[in-house]
């Protein structure tokens, strides 16, 4: 909660620190128009009042009108774009978890075998190659050369493949690498030896005793992963021209649509903080030592 407040405040004052105000453009507008605009957006009010108004608006999810898209309220634009982005993002997260973790486990169990080398090679590529490169390659190969899918938009189910793939890239690779190394580390632990010495089956040793411990660092990564997917969506939605919130944000950045920038930033920040909170909850469910730490505080 404090983080959100802090972010909103910092963002607000940062935007108001811009010299010349939001309407100074390459081509200066007549003074009376600027005055009228300032009047319309309450920019003549004292800064503290503006701040206070903004904070009240924020609490009631009323983020004010968009500077550049006349007739649209910022929250309308967010609500318009968010479901589309959320759908792709959610698909990406599901794929990352359902594919990344098993791949990491299998890779760890086949350590230094060809399958492991192959997976780790692909994963290294995935971690290093930026998402817009993946997106560009995808469009070139599958939409351009092979003509299997549409390059733009989301009309057909197959149109989701490209964006989701580009979005998934880095985090999927990262999660499988993390799972692998964490699994390898855990398999060396004494309690795994204990479990084996107690005659537990290989299956139980791996999927009960090792996995839960190995997932702890993976869960910690979920927070940053949400951030990565968020920023990844800026690029992916731009490349694939998807009308999601990421595309609106990039557009507003290019148009200097200040209310929209503030609104989206705060929205992203809130989303992020909520996800981090969820991750904390998940974390304490897995690791009993954390639970105790919280209780004693």
């Amino acid at each position: 909660m404090l983080t959100i407040l802090l972010i909103a405040t910092v963002t607000f004052f940062m935007m108001h620190a811009i010299p010349g105000g939001p309407f100074s453009r390459e081509r200066p507008l007549p003074d009376e128009i600027i005055a009228a605009l300032n009047e319309k957006y309450h920019l003549n009010d004292p800064i503290l009042k503006q701040y206070f108004d903004y904070m009240v608006g924020l609490a009631t999810f009323n983020l004010g009108p968009s500077f550049r898209r006349t007739g649209f309220e910022v929250e309308e634009l967010i609500l318009l774009g968010f479901p589309i982005s959320a759908k792709i993002g959610l698909m990406a997260i599901i794929i990352i978890i359902l594919v990344g973790i098993p791949v990491g486990i299998v890779s760890a169990l086949r350590q230094n075998k060809p399958a492991d080398y192959f997976v780790m090679f692909i994963a290294t590529l995935g971690v290093t190659i930026p998402s817009f490169v993946v997106a560009a390659l995808f469009i070139y190969i599958f939409a351009g050369v092979l003509q299997w899918v549409d390059a733009f938009g989301l009309e057909r189910p197959s149109s989701y493949i490209g964006p989701v793939l580009a979005l998934v890239g880095y985090s999927l690779a990262f999660v499988s690498r993390l799972t692998r190394s964490s699994m390898l580390e855990v398999m060396r632990q004494d309690y795994i030896r204990t479990a084996r010495a107690n005659g537990l089956s290989r299956f139980k040793v791996i999927y009960k005793h090792a996995l839960k411990n190995a997932l702890i660092p993976v869960v910690t990564y979920l927070g940053p992963m949400v951030a990565a997917i968020l920023t990844g969506s800026f690029v992916v939605e731009k490349v694939f021209t998807i009308p999601g919130i990421g595309k609106y944000f990039v557009q507003s950045v290019n148009d200097r649509d200040y209310t929209m920038i503030i609104g989206s930033t705060v929205f992203f920040a809130v989303l992020y903080v909520i996800m981090v909170l969820l991750v904390d909850v998940a974390y304490s469910l897995i690791d009993p030592r954390i639970r105790l730490g919280k209780k004693s505080e």
Binding site: D190, Y191, T194, P288
Partner: peptide
Amino acid sequence: SDAEMNEYRGKEISMIFQDPMTSLNPVYT
């Protein structure tokens, strides 16, 4: 085989280790 050996481990022959701090799985009771 490893599976056959599992019938002995923990039942007929069992073992305790040096470091009790790390020999129990921290995430289970």
